[in-house]
């Protein structure tokens, strides 16, 4: 693993150039292109807001900020894995003719999406300030908990990178991996607190037999845990509307479960090591693919 890492370091300039190219293609060589690329999340959030706030009448404070805080990281997860699944197989003709560390392909896909996430978060803060201004400067746009953001982004990046390495390698040999992936990502969206809140889940499960166990299992999904964590860090706590015992109530956010979060962090780094190891084991056979 040390050797492989040294080799990767030797080719870092190539990695940076590939990241730059991915971003340039995505933004079509213009800074307006970046804003265009934010259209998808903004429209999605607007529709979700319309459905939940307007049609279903959910009264949660600052609903759109809550959605964005979970949806932007989820989009990073989604796009990184979709892009990296294709990364090696799409470059196979090049891989067959020149040598460079093959992990550069999935890594550049992940890093480009990560930079995109960071830029999108900057826009998210602008959005928070805009909300703050339009609501008469009442609740502060964010709290000191924003300082936790790097501590969330780093394990999340590790998680995504580990999965990206695994998926990109397996997709070379089994072309149905990317179809399974797209279905899995679609379903993941529903079992992750993005349109709704982990609090909603908590109150729905509270009085059920094994409710606590199911709630814990639910948060053993690292994406769910991260989604909840991003909300805690990015959005100031407001009242959330949940159904408790069949009655609609406004409650404050539930306390953060550091134990479960620690599990996610450990699992993310374990996955990164496992993914890197597996990729390095498989990468010499990419060119020999039948």
């Amino acid at each position: 693993m040390r050797e492989n890492f040294k080799e990767l370091w030797r080719f870092r300039e190539l990695l940076f150039a590939m990241v730059e190219r991915e971003l340039r293609i995505r933004y079509k060589n213009s800074s307006l292109g970046f804003l265009w690329s934010l259209l998808n999340p903004l429209v999605t959030v607007a529709v979700m807001w319309f459905v939940f706030r307007f049609l279903l009448g959910n009264q949660t404070d600052n609903y759109s900020a809550y959605i964005l805080a979970a949806y932007l990281p989820f989009m990073f997860f989604n796009m990184s894995l979709m892009d990296s699944a294709q990364s090696v197989i799409a470059s196979l003709p090049v891989v067959k003719k020149v040598y460079f560390p093959r992990e550069i392909l999935p890594l550049s896909a992940v890093i480009a999406n990560f930079i995109h996430l960071c830029l999108a978060l900057v826009v998210f803060f602008v959005f928070l300030f805009a909300v703050w201004a339009t609501t008469g400067f009442q609740v502060a746009p964010f709290t000191w908990k924003i300082a936790y953001l790097p501590l969330l982004l780093i394990p999340y990046l590790a998680l995504v990178t580990g999965l990206a390495l695994l998926i990109s390698a397996y997709n070379v040999f089994y072309e149905d991996v990317k179809y399974i992936l797209s279905v899995a990502l679609y379903l993941l969206f529903f079992v992750t607190p993005i349109m709704y809140f982990s609090e909603t889940v908590y109150y729905a499960l509270k009085n059920r037999p094994n409710g606590q166990l199911i709630y814990t299992l639910y948060h053993l999904n690292p994406v769910s845990m991260m989604s909840t964590a991003f909300r805690k860090a990015l959005v100031p706590p407001g009242k959330i509307e949940v159904i408790d015992n069949g009655v609609s109530t406004m409650i404050g956010p539930r306390p953060f479960d550091y134990g479960l979060f620690a599990v996610t962090v450990v699992a993310s780094f374990a996955l990164l090591f496992y993914g890197y190891h597996t990729f390095n084991r498989m990468k010499w056979r990419f060119v020999e693919r039948p």
Binding site: F173, Y174, E175, D176, V177, I180, E288, R289, P290
Partner: peptide, 15 residues
């Protein structure tokens, strides 16, 4: 030496 495959495209099914 190369592993020779007669099945063509790889998929989980062929695996």
């Amino acid at each position: 030496s190369f592993a020779l495959s007669h099945s063509g495209a790889a998929s989980l099914k062929t695996a």
